[in-house]
Each structure stands twice: as C-alpha cells, then as structure tokens.
C-alpha cells in the first residue's frame, strides 16, 4: 500500500460565523499546529487529510469557508456534493451560537442528500464562556448530530471531531457502497465527488488504484 492510497474521497465543509476558529481547527488537525498568525479567510480554502477509521482510509477534502453573513450565498454554491459538514460556533460568542441554527437550516434547504454533520463549540480554553454545554447538546439533539466542545489552541478534542465524523461517514459510505456495488465495478480509477451533479447519489465507494 503506497502513501497515496485511500478507499474513499469525501468532501467536507466547515461552516460557522466569522472568527469562531474554523481555520484554526483545520490547521490544528491537518498540520498539527496552532498559528497565532491566522488571517481572515477570503473566499474558500482547502485542506486535504487522510483519516484512518479502523481498516479504511478516508481522504478528506475539507473546504474552509468565509464566515461573514453576506457571503452565505456564494458559500451555498459549494454545498453540492458535500458528505460531511462541521458546524462551528464559539463558546465565547453568543451570537455565533444563535446563528449556527441558521447555518444548519441553510444546509437542510439546499441539499436533499443525507449528510453527516457534527456540531462543534470551539474556544474551550477561554474563561469567558457565554454558551453552556447543555445548550449545545440540546441543539445537537434537535438536529440529531454529535456534539463536541473543543479548543484549537490547546488541541483538545480536535482529533475527536474528525474521528466521530469519520465513523459516521464510514457507516454511511459502506451502506451506499452495498446499494450501488454494481455501479462501482464499472467505475475505474478515482472517484471524484463533485464532478457531476448526479454523482452524489451514484457510486460512493471505489478503490483508488495507486
């Protein structure tokens, strides 16, 4: 097995208000560092990371979006073909928590496919907490998704976000894989999620031959 080998390629989007720490979570997870020199994300950014879930390798193509409310329309054009969504709010910013439901709704409106989501309350390291754990849990329950409180600064629970998400993705992908196993055999080479619109409900698993 070479380094580039993976079982599935999955598109994941990170959503949430401006300044809640989306980019920091990703740099902590992908590059194992917390950068004090972060900048505001303009447009959209990408990270790639291969995740090991039991015996499977899932290649995550993570889309890091701009958080400002007015860019939501352009962000929505990136939803297509996404399998995993990470909703982030900041524990020290009440507004970001209030807005997170809006982000969830925007996903529900624009995608008919079932997506694996997770709710994340970031900045656990701060003393000045404005959102209680119970509130986050309640919201996560309402939309039936896992919930975590994290700190990108102290690297607390960051890996867990992706492990949890990965578990769900794996179950999801395996189910899909059984449904369309006939299709997958015809497909050769790599599977690209966002190549065609109809591919999202077509084959979701294929072996990369490299």
């Amino acid at each position: 097995m070479s380094l580039g080998y993976y079982d599935w390629l999955v598109k994941v989007i990170v959503l949430g208000d401006s300044g809640v720490g989306k980019t920091n979570i990703l740099t902590q997870f992908c590059d194992s560092k917390f950068s004090q020199n972060y900048t505001a994300t303009i447009g959209v950014d990408f990270k790639i990371k291969i995740l090991n879930i039991q015996d499977k390798k899932i290649k995550l193509q993570i889309w890091d979006t701009a958080g400002q409310e007015r860019f939501r329309n352009i962000t929505q054009t990136y939803y297509k073909g996404a399998f995993g969504i990470i909703f982030v709010y900041s524990l020290i910013d009440r507004n970001s928590f209030n807005n997170v439901e809006g982000w969830i709704k925007s996903i529900l409106e624009s995608t008919t496919d079932e997506v694996c989501s997770i709710l994340v309350g970031n900045k656990l390291d701060s003393q000045d907490r404005r959102v209680q754990t119970a509130e986050g849990e309640k919201l996560a329950q309402k939309y039936n998704m896992p919930f975590l409180e994290t700190s990108a600064l102290e690297n607390k629970n960051i890996q867990d976000i992706f492990d949890r998400l990965g578990q769900n993705l794996k179950i999801r992908l395996e189910n899909e894989g059984q449904k369309v196993s006939n299709n997958t055999q015809r497909q050769s080479g790599q599977f690209k999620l966002n190549q065609e619109a109809n591919q999202t409900e077509q084959p979701t698993s294929s072996c990369n031959s490299c």
């Binding site: 990136y78 690209k192 999620l193």
Partner: peptide
C-alpha cells in the same frame, strides 16, 4: 480542471476580486 473536480473557478479566483489582488 474539470477532470480533477474544479468545475467552478470561483473557488480560487473570487479572492482576487474581493481583495483586488492585494493579498
């Protein structure tokens, strides 16, 4: 680009407009 999954150039070009190539 299409083959690699880049179907919409806005993912790499929108920042040029928003920052007027200043970044």
């Amino acid at each position: 680009f299409l083959k690699l999954g880049i179907e919409d150039m806005s993912m790499c070009a929108s920042a040029f407009y928003l920052t007027l190539c200043m970044q």
